[in-house]
Simulated scan of single mutants.
Amino acid sequence: MKNLFLIAKLDIKESTRSKWFFVYLLVFGGLMALFFVTGITDSVVMGFTGLSRLLLVYMQVTIVILPIFILITTVKSISGDRESAILEYMLSFPVSLKEYYWGKMLGRFFIVFFPVFLALVLGIVWGVFKGGELPWKMLFVYSGFLFSLCAAFLGIAFFISTIVKSHDVALGASFVVWITLLAFIDIALIGLMLANRWNDDLIIALSLLNPLEVFRVGAISLFDPELTVMGPVAYFLLDTFGHTMILFYAVLYPLVLGILFAMLGYYFFKKRDLL
């Protein structure tokens, strides 16, 4: 256990020294600062005001930017160490494969989750300073959404990083995964439904297997319990699951998906040729 935390600490130090981490901080911190400057907390759009409006815009940003940042910066975590012979060097110490793998994941999770959570907290603090009411429920539930989304794509990224040996192939695979999941939020599913006359229930079921779509539905239901912005689909979701179950599913499903991919990645990491 001690070695696991040492590996995590080493990965955190290595990440904070890299340029991509400062870009990561700048993107989310800078966007939140931009929201403050443009006065989003003072605007009224589609009935959303104050902190609700701020969090809604933040959700739209994270659903696009956060997954690709996690994927492109994490897929090189193990494949990059393998190519640069760092993996061989690390395994020359009394460190087990289990400690190395999960230590890297723990350190990387802190790096990808902390900046987005910090930006969220700063946004809440600013909104309260401007006279808004502190939305405890939104803060905790939306933090859970961010936590599970980070876990999902971190698990996917580590899985990709263990099954490919080339850094370039890992980056290409991460872009394919991101574009595919992003397209299947709306565009591809609507096209399949119109072209092939698929059953509506099947289309909705497929969409709820997409962690990005689950995050989107959960976040919208947090701000709009009636899901009015989603149209007729809202009736099916609310009648089938209910508002509370939607929130639980939006937190638990991406988290479980990330754990499964991480465990699958660890399985291949143990079985395949490490060097």
Rank of each mutant, 00 (worst) to 15 (best):
L252R: 10
G265F: 09
L56Y: 02
K270R: 14
L171V: 08
L87K: 06
H167Q: 09
L97K: 11
Y249N: 00
F69C: 08
S18N: 15
A262M: 14
G132N: 05
S161H: 04
L255S: 14
L247K: 03
L255F: 15
I220T: 01
W198D: 06
G80V: 09
G144M: 08
I111Y: 09
P254I: 12
F117I: 12
L257H: 12
P232R: 15
Y267L: 06
S77A: 07
P254R: 13
T244E: 03
R272L: 05
N196W: 05
E226C: 03
E88P: 01
G47A: 13
S161L: 08
L10F: 15
T49H: 11
K19V: 15
L260R: 07
T74Y: 12
I72N: 03
I12L: 15
I86G: 01
L227W: 05
K104Q: 04
Q60A: 02
T180Y: 14
F36L: 03
P94L: 07
D186E: 05
S207D: 14
K98R: 10
N199G: 00
N199Y: 10
S166P: 01
R17P: 15
S166I: 07
V27T: 07
L139E: 01
A250G: 01
G144F: 10
G231P: 03
D201T: 14
N196A: 05
R108G: 10
F117E: 01
I187M: 04
L55K: 02
V176Y: 12
L10V: 02
A205G: 04
I63C: 03
L87F: 00
F175R: 11
I86V: 06
A173D: 07
K13V: 09
L206A: 06
